[in-house]
Amino acid sequence: MDNTGLVAMASIFASGLTIGLGSIGPALGEGRALAQALSAIAQQPDEATTITRTLFVGMAMVESTAIYCFVVSMILIFANPFWNQLAQSSGG
């Protein structure tokens, strides 16, 4: 297998690993945050609007981690910075 195939294979593997592991943490965090928010609303129904607003802001922050992992994954697949280095070193 030539170097181009190795770079492609490593990029696809790293991309899958990035999006796979990078989505587990935010999913668990969002589930825990939602469970705690529902528990807080059940205990204090008068504060439901404040809790909900804070929950949505927190969920957006947690979800940004998964979005960053998705962006890194897409860069590895479609705009890999190693392709130019590989092309220059092979003389192409």
Rank of each mutant, 00 (worst) to 15 (best):
V71W: 00
Q36L: 15
N3C: 11
F82S: 14
L38E: 09
N84Q: 15
G92K: 12
C69D: 00
L17P: 01
N80H: 07
I12N: 04
M61R: 08
I67W: 00
I51A: 05
N3G: 10
T49A: 14
G92E: 13
N84L: 14
S15C: 05
R53G: 07
N80F: 13
S11Y: 04
S15Q: 02
P26H: 01
V62D: 06
R53K: 12
A33L: 07
R32L: 09
L17R: 01
Q44M: 10
L86P: 02
G91A: 02
L28Q: 11
M74D: 08
T52P: 06
R53Y: 08
Y68F: 02
A42G: 14
N84A: 15
L86C: 02
T49W: 09
S11L: 06
L34C: 11
V57I: 14
G91R: 02
A35K: 09
L76K: 02
A37E: 04
L28N: 08
S23G: 12
L34V: 15
A37F: 06
M61I: 08
G91D: 01
D2W: 07
E63K: 02
G31A: 05
T65C: 00
V62C: 09
L55C: 07
A40Q: 12
A27E: 00
A37C: 06
C69A: 09
A79V: 14
I77Q: 05
E63H: 04
G22F: 00
D46P: 11
A27D: 02
Q36N: 14
I19C: 01
S89V: 14
A79I: 13
V57M: 15
V72F: 07
L6H: 08
G20F: 03
A10T: 10
V62Y: 03
F78Y: 15
A79L: 14
V71M: 01
G20Y: 02
T54H: 11
L21E: 02
D2G: 09
Q88G: 06
D2F: 07
M59P: 07
S89R: 10
E63Q: 09
V62Q: 07
V57A: 09
G22Q: 02
V57E: 03
Q85Y: 13
G92W: 08
S64R: 00
G22A: 03
F56R: 10
Q88Y: 07
M1P: 10
S89M: 12
I75Y: 01
E47G: 08
G58F: 04
M1I: 05
A33T: 09
T4F: 14
F82Y: 13
M59E: 12
I19N: 01
T50E: 12
G91C: 01
I67K: 00
I51Q: 07
M74L: 15
T50Y: 10
N3L: 14
L38H: 13
P26Q: 05
P26A: 05
L6P: 04
L86I: 03
T18P: 01
T49S: 13
I19D: 00
S64F: 00
A27Y: 01
A37K: 06
L21K: 06
S23Q: 07
G16R: 05
S39G: 12
T49R: 13
S11N: 03
S90N: 10
P45T: 11
A40E: 13
N80V: 06
I67Q: 01
T54R: 10
G25K: 11
A48E: 14
L21Q: 05
